[in-house]
Amino acid sequence: MPEAVREPFADPAHQRDAVALGMWAFLGQEVLFFGVLFVFYTSLRVRHPELFAAFAPRLDWRLATVMTVALLISSFTMALAVRFAFTRARRSLVLALSTTMILGAAFLALKGWEYAHHFEHGETPQIDLAGLGRGPGLATFFGVYFVLTGFHALHVLGGLGALGWLAVAAWRTPASDLRGSPVMAVGLYWHFVDIVWLFLFPALYLAGRLAP
């Protein structure tokens, strides 16, 4: 017989505190996780600035601006969701969570469209295995682009999953039983993923544009 889950906390405030700390610790590891990618980026940018000057203009910064705005608004609706969760406003909570999800999904859809576009134009990260002396070039730049944005997109996807789970749970739970801490934890995560994008946007899309 499976034994019941034992939560070792005395009261909800204590639990909320612990969940917040746990989420912050998790975000600490996320910073290091993405840190590797940014060091990879910096290393390439320092050694081969010409790649960024040559190929970054192929990225569509207008599209990326739209995506950025979508994520920023989604952060706002997420913040509202956290507030509604703690005030037990069930309908508003479901609404805020769904809006956040729609905006996140829109971001991913645009990203997917952009990827497809790159592949159509042969802007792929694969290097030519056979050709020796092929040297750094288009594939190198698109390597860093796809790896960085790819890991970010996976995090957005994970966030959507968590949001969906929260929305369904909120839909099913009577308002009096709503618990704020899961929403707060997912909220922290969602903001973090947005912030990562705020670094990726200039680092990739705007790189090399000011080069003489």
Partner: peptide
């Protein structure tokens, strides 16, 4: 992350650590 990058480079031929490709 480093191990994932190794897997990506090996499986998808992205030149992350490959000096030939600027890595």
């Amino acid at each position: 992350m480093t191990l994932l990058l190794v897997a990506i480079e090996r499986g998808l031929h992205v030149g992350i650590f490959d000096p030939e490709a600027g890595g």
